[in-house]
Design a protein around this nucleic acid. Structure first.
Length: 769
RNA sequence: UGCCCUAUAGCUCAAUUGGCAGAGCGCCUGACUCUGGAUCAGGAGGUUCCAGGUUCGAAUCCUGGUAGGGCAACCA
């Protein structure tokens, strides 16, 4: 099993969270164990989206030898229930993960959280607001307008403490007061406009009962629970990114370092399904599916019941990766994961889903021939056989016969031959039809010399599955299709709901005939119906005394695809970009009158490009720095190095915090202008200067930096590089000119970035040309 | 309308931090086959969102745009 994320060099590529952790470990920001957590709210059944988070958190902890906590984020008494806690724990275990003794509940932290809230009040960072919910909402402002301060914002610490204690004592009714953080009602971030930390809610909590009349909100409970548990990396989904400043604010004010940090990644979306708990709940409540564990649901219980393996779900989650871009994963990816896993786990048996009767006219009536059939195909090294009875009358798949077959149809048709899997070659002699012309029976002859495994070398194009009519057993089979008709059911027209996209044919119940060896099969093992797909005996139905086979996933079917390409419409290819190619914008045109004059002056005085001039005209700090430095060295070079190289390296407080002067900067630029240093070297020195504040000359002297422009010396290096990579040289001469970058890179690397690139390029072009 | 996040092959993601744009899935060929499965070999598929700029060299740095997503619960 190849690593799906292996880079060509064979090095495993690491997603951005792994890179952050690597960096944290390297820098010493985190010194002990890496501790992650999976923090579900127990208000619904876990689904494939949870699986992504579970796999992420647990594998990260395992990879770094740390641990992952299971914490129930149960701060809302109205929606939560023990049933969901049980489902969550069961499904995480089923997925193959163990939190050991680290099972926590935010509701166990209520006392600590209460104390922390009091501490916040004592620090003057929180207050009791007695406005109504409506008032609070109305004074929060909008995304474009600032909010206004609550009239209760400046209550004394004493008064706040007193009121909060009485809230906790249950003296007030729901909604009478809330506890709010005192941050900034004018913040661009709505979350920072004095967020509500605690509310009064006289509801019974599924674990704490009526003990607490007040409940902390997510924004308060979550970061502090992380801090209490010593979580190092708190991973959540993208929509929480705006919560991060609040997360940091709370943790910073209430805990000492080391403290947890929050990182956000994209949640999973899958084609042809919905993922939100609200929508899944609606499907269940309205009876549109048979329950949380309906096999069409992508809840873990539904998938398990359908026959998905835990390994395949883990594999899927690892395949899709972790990133910050919104996504919608192709269902084919999930199907691949389960097929790939089941391929060597599922015994092969025969089952006819849509039977058509075949009479073997030269097979003795009443006789049963016992054929020995392996449970495993030739390429899977597993043992095991069963008995498959052959009789005069058998069932074959209706699809496996065509009266007027198209080209390349490798199955049965009048006068043609096909092999019965594990049995004999048969030939279709006669087609029996009813009054309407429908095919009812096929009369065939079999060739007794062609028994499977007998060494007969007769070959036919096709092999089909079949079941004895008298020995086979009738069974119920459920064939599942995608629950929704469209790839993105969340996207709906005005006045519609996602329910309008439901696929009415997502469940097809079939009466099938299965070989007798499967008659008393118990659930919990996976089976492939040959040429059909992977099936799983429904454990729920089984418990009720019924035997129903669920189709987990069909086999890849290149024939069906060829015949009916319309079935799965190819995704519309994105044709020409709708965006028209914009005309180059004149940077001067955007400027105000005053700025324009400044820009014109910069051009006249220093010969800057309009682009650089316009840029500097609108930024005072940069312009002042530039003017100072430009007195000493070529202004165009100063502008380039300042705008493109220095600025990205600037400390967050800007020039203010810079540890060297414009004169120092000019000195550095001069070293490039006079060819003393290569641009690569200048960049290195600049980074050093920003970090240490040392002067360029001192750094250059200490490191002994000097650009190499000597052709003889460089030619030697170039020759060495070319000699070391004859294959690439040949490829280059073959037209793969992109390799120039590779050769350049090699030379630059070997010279430690000191080579004069123009000289090197000319040299290489000569030698390769 | 403000702030934040994002944009690389049809889909999901990489790209050693400025040096050959790759992988898995999907698709197409072929080989093999008593599963039209699996396996093996090969192939097609790219305006790295757009336009400028910096650089010997830009997916990566700078400027300006465009598109998608998120944020105004006393939910999480």
């Amino acid at each position: 099993m190849a690593d799906s994320n292996a880079s060509p060099a064979g090095k495993e590529s690491r997603h951005f969270i792994q890179q952050i952790i690597d960096e944290d470990l390297k820098s010493g920001r985190v010194s002990g164990d890496i501790i992650t957590r999976f923090p579900p709210e127990p208000n619904g059944y876990p689904h494939i989206g949870h699986a992504k988070a579970i796999v992420l958190n647990f594998t990260l902890a395992r990879e770094y030898g740390g641990r992952c906590h299971l914490r129930f984020d149960d701060t809302n008494p109205e929606t939560e229930d023990m049933e969901y806690v049980r489902a969550m724990k069961r499904d995480i275990r089923w997925l193959g993960y163990d939190w050991n003794e680290h099972e926590y509940y935010a509701s166990d932290y209520f006392e600590q959280l209460y104390d922390l809230a009091c501490e916040l009040i004592r620090k003057g960072l929180a207050y009791v607001d007695s406005q109504s919910g409506d008032e609070i909402r109305a004074t929060r402002g909008t995304v474009t307008e600032a909010g206004t301060n609550s009239p209760y914002r400046n209550r004394s610490v004493q008064e706040n403490l007193d009121l909060f204690a009485r809230m906790r004592a249950g003296e007030f009714e729901d909604g009478a007061h809330v506890l709010r953080a005192k941050i900034d009602m004018a913040s661009n971030n709505m979350l920072m406009r004095d967020p509500v930390l605690y509310r009064i809610k006289k509801a019974s909590h599924y674990r704490r009962g009526d003990e607490w009349p007040i409940y902390p909100l997510y924004d308060f409970a979550h970061p502090l629970s992380d801090a209490i548990e010593g979580i190092t990396h708190s991973l959540c989904t993208l929509e929480f990114d705006v919560h991060r400043p609040l997360y940091d604010w709370l943790v910073d004010h209430l805990f000492d370092a080391p403290r947890p940090h929050q990182y956000e990644s994209a949640r999973l979306n899958l084609d042809y399904t919905v993922m939100s708990k609200r929508k899944l709940l609606q499907l269940v409540r309205e009876g549109l599916v048979a329950g949380w564990d309906d096999p069409r649901m992508l809840t873990l219980s539904g998938m398990r019941r359908r026959g998905y393996t835990a390994a395949s779900i883990r594999r899927f989650c690892e395949m899709i990766g972790v990133a910050k871009a919104d996504n919608r994963v192709d269902m084919a990816q999930l199907e691949f994961a389960v097929r790939d896993d089941l391929n060597d786990k599922a015994r092969r048996v025969m089952c006819v889903l849509d039977p058509l009767k075949v009479v073997l006219t030269n097979f003795p009536e009443g006789e049963v021939e016992h054929l020995e059939a392996s449970y495993w195909p030739h390429d899977i090294p597993k043992e095991g056989v069963r008995d498959v009875p052959l009789t005069r009358e058998i069932w074959i798949e209706r699809d496996d016969f065509m009266e007027n077959p198209p080209k390349k149809f490798h199955r049965l048709s009048p006068g043609e031959e096909v092999r019965l899997r594990y049995g004999y070659i048969i030939k279709c002699e006669h087609v029996v039809k009813d009054a309407e012309g429908n095919v009812t029976d096929l009369h065939c002859t079999y060739d007794p010399d062609t028994k499977s495994g007998s060494g007969s070398d007769r070959r036919v194009k096709g092999t089909i599955h079949w079941v004895s009519a008298s020995e086979g057993v009738e069974v119920d089979v459920n064939l599942y299709d995608r629950l929704f008709k469209v790839a993105n059911p969340d996207r709906v027209e005005e006045g519609q709901s996602f329910l309008d996209h439901l696929n009415p044919d997502s469940l097809q119940r079939v009466k099938a005939v299965i070989e007798p060896s499967m008659a008393s099969e118990a659930p919990e093992s996976w089976v492939q119906f040959e040429r059909q797909g992977f099936f799983y005996l429904d454990p729920v139905a089984f418990a009720e005394g019924r035997r129903v086979w669920n189709r987990t996933v069909g086999l890849r079917d290149s024939w069906g695809k060829q015949q009916a390409p319309e079935q799965t419409p190819a995704k519309p290819r994105v044709t020409a970009k709708p965006q028209e190619t914009a005309a180059p914008v004149d940077p001067m045109a955007e400027l105000s009158g005053e700025d324009r004059e400044l820009a014109i002056e910069l051009i006249a005085l220093h010969g800057l490009s309009t682009e650089d001039a316009a840029f500097l005209a609108t930024r005072d700090d940069e312009r002042i720095f530039f003017k100072e430095a430009a007195r000493r060295v070529n202004p165009v070079a100063v502008a380039n190095w300042l705008i493109h190289e220095l600025r990205p390296l600037l400390p967050s407080d800007g020039f203010e915090a810079l540890r060297f002067s414009p004169t120092d900067f000019a000195e550095l630029v001069a070293l490039h202008v006079d060819n003393t240093l290569s641009s690569r070297q200048v960049k290195d020195v600049l980074a050093d200067m920003v970090a240490t504040g040392k002067r360029a000359s001192a750094i250059v002297e200490k490191k002994g930096l000097r650009q190499i422009s000597d052709e003889g010396a460089l030619a030697e290096v170039a020759d060495r590089v070319l000699a070391a990579h004859p294959d690439r040289v040949a490829a280059y001469r073959d037209g793969k000119t992109g390799l120039m970058g590779f050769f350049m890179g090699q030379v630059m690397q070997q010279t430690g970035g000191s080579a004069n690139p123009q000289v090197v390029r000319t040299l290489l072009e000569e030698k390769l040309g």
